[in-house]
Every structure is written in structure tokens, then in C-alpha cells.
């Protein structure tokens, strides 16, 4: 598998605060990778170093084979960036800014296709200042993908979305990933990481605490599952390492359906909160400071 992003020993300090602390990571070509972490964890710092916006204090970084700090213009032709902050462009319309932006790229996507794909058809000719938060964010994504990037950075793309807008957005990202685009996203929404990412890196206080598939993160797969059902109006719960056997026993005991049967594993949220717990108070203080 080819490596799209390679990070070794990355360190970035602001004053006395270590925002990124000796980080190693590989993101493979065609992969959707999610950085998951609380506010102030260092996600945006890492991503902006990868995007070539911030300098680093130490370490090696290679993005599509190039050091982003010294990247030529041709490199920007191959990447798409959706920044965390959104603003400006108020006086233009989505179609105008998309057309203009697409002209800077060597092999841009068709603007009309991008407008349809991002669900902006109705607002394509409206002033950007009048867009809702979700529409505005979709425009940011449209601007990020209009250049047909090989690698797309998404920094907290769905903050402030309503549930339906988030689902639509996920479909859009999955579509891009299906088309072969490598995607690096940061999020503090667990369900987003679980839905979209092939692999998740949990980051707090500038360090990578865990790195795995969403299903296996923090040893979730090997932990005990909880089997639960109702019998005679009472809820029964059994914690077991062999939930399949437990369900088989229940199936044999009940004539038809087992009432209200559920089998659950520790949620990603439980695992995540356990991982970041030692760092959360630190991160909060840094944000306040």
C-alpha cells in the first residue's frame, strides 16, 4: 500500500505548551483517516502543518511525497483543504466562487456536478452571506473538492450540523472515498469517526493515544459484550465473553422471538472517554488559557 502521509517525530511548541509531541503516523492512499480528540488536543495544529500552513519545530513530514513546508504550487493542485474556520466570500455566490476557484486547478471537476453533489443547487446563485451554517459548510467542502484532489483535508467539517445534514454530508464523503480520494478528517464526534473512518487516531495533549479501526479501537473487540432481554416483565442482563453462545441458549429457551433482545459492546464513546480521561482536564485548561 502506498503512503499518502508520513509523519515521524513531529513536534510543535507554542511558548512552553507542547501542542504536538513526537507524533508518528502513516496514512495510506485511498484511506479515510480520522483524528479524534477533545478541543485543544492538537488536531488542527497537525493538520495545518500537513497542509503547509504552519511550521514545525522538529520531525519529518511527507504529504504526497513532498514536504508541505517547501511544497511547490503543483503540490497544491493535488490536495483539497477544508479549513476549520469558515468565513468571507459574502458578496459572491457559490457558483461564482466555485467557477473562479476551479480555474486555478489543472484538472478541475465540473462545477455543476460539484454543486449537485454538495446539495447546493437551490442556493447556487444566492449570495453566500445568506447561506445557513450547514449550507456554508457544504460550500467549503465544494471548494475543497472542485480541484479533484487526491488527498482531502477536512477539519471538523460537520460542527453545527443538524442530524439530517450530517447524514447527507457523510454520504458525500463516503462517495468521495469510494472514488479513491484519500481523506484525513478531524472531528470530536465519535459517530462521525465510526461512520466514515477506516482508521481512527485518538489524539490528546499532542500525543497519539490509540490507533486502530473504529471497531477495534482500545481493544473494544476483545471486551465482554452485554446480552440483555426481557422475561416476565423484568429486564435481564448478562455480561459475557461469548455472546453468541448466550443468544443461542436464549433462542432455545424461548418459543419464538426473544423479547427485547440486545447485544452490545462497549461503545466507541465509552472507549474514547476512557482513553482521553487522563488528558481532558489539561486540554480544557489550555483552551481557557
Amino acid at each position: 500500500m502506498t503512503t499518502a502521509i508520513r509523519i515521524r517525530g513531529l513536534t510543535k511548541t507554542y511558548g512552553t505548551h507542547r501542542a504536538v509531541d513526537d507524533l508518528d503516523l502513516d496514512v495510506h492512499e485511498g484511506e479515510v483517516f480520522a483524528f479524534l480528540g477533545p478541543n485543544g488536543a492538537g488536531k488542527t495544529t497537525v493538520v495545518e502543518i500537513l497542509e503547509g500552513f504552519r511550521t514545525r519545530d522538529a520531525g519529518e513530514v511527507s504529504v504526497l511525497g513532498t514536504d508541505p513546508h517547501r511544497a511547490p504550487r503543483a503540490w497544491r493542485d493535488r490536495i483539497g483543504i477544508v479549513l476549520q474556520s469558515t468565513g468571507g466570500l459574502d458578496l459572491l455566490t457559490p457558483r461564482e466562487i466555485l467557477r473562479s476557484t476551479s480555474r486555478a486547478y489543472s484538472t478541475p471537476r465540473d462545477v455543476e456536478e460539484v454543486i449537485v453533489a454538495t446539495g447546493l443547487t437551490e442556493k447556487a446563485d444566492a449570495r453566500i452571506s445568506g447561506l445557513s451554517g450547514g449550507q456554508r459548510r457544504r460550500l467549503d467542502v465544494a471548494l475543497g473538492i472542485v480541484g479533484r484532489p487526491e488527498l482531502l483535508f477536512l477539519d471538523e467539517p460537520t460542527t453545527g450540523f443538524d442530524p439530517q445534514a450530517r447524514r447527507d454530508f457523510w454520504d458525500l464523503i463516503r462517495g468521495l472515498a469510494g472514488g479513491g480520494t484519500t481523506i484525513l478528517l478531524t472531528t470530536h464526534y465519535l459517530d462521525e469517526a465510526e461512520h466514515l473512518a477506516d482508521r481512527v487516531g485518538v489524539i490528546a495533549a499532542g500525543r497519539l493515544l490509540a490507533l486502530d479501526t473504529p471497531a477495534a479501537l482500545g481493544g473494544r473487540q476483545s471486551q465482554e459484550a452485554t446480552v440483555s432481554w426481557e422475561e416476565g416483565g423484568v429486564r435481564h442482563t448478562v455480561r459475557t465473553a461469548e455472546p453468541t453462545a448466550e443468544v443461542a441458549r436464549l433462542a432455545a429457551r424461548f418459543p419464538g422471538e426473544v423479547p427485547e433482545l440486545t447485544v452490545t459492546r462497549p461503545s466507541l464513546e465509552d472507549t474514547y472517554l476512557g482513553l482521553i480521561a487522563p488528558h481532558v482536564s489539561d486540554a480544557t485548561e489550555e483552551v481557557l488559557a
Partner: peptide
């Protein structure tokens, strides 16, 4: 000054648009 503060310049910098343009 407005474009610098509202992120328009950073957004342009993220594209392959030459600074001269």
C-alpha cells in the same frame, strides 16, 4: 485587511492560484 481576517486569503493560499494572480 478584511480578507486577511475573514480567512479569504488563507483559503486562496490553499489553492494552486499563483500569488501574482
Amino acid at each position: 485587511a478584511t480578507e486577511r481576517d475573514d480567512g479569504t486569503l488563507k483559503r486562496l493560499r490553499a489553492t494552486p492560484m499563483p500569488a501574482t494572480s
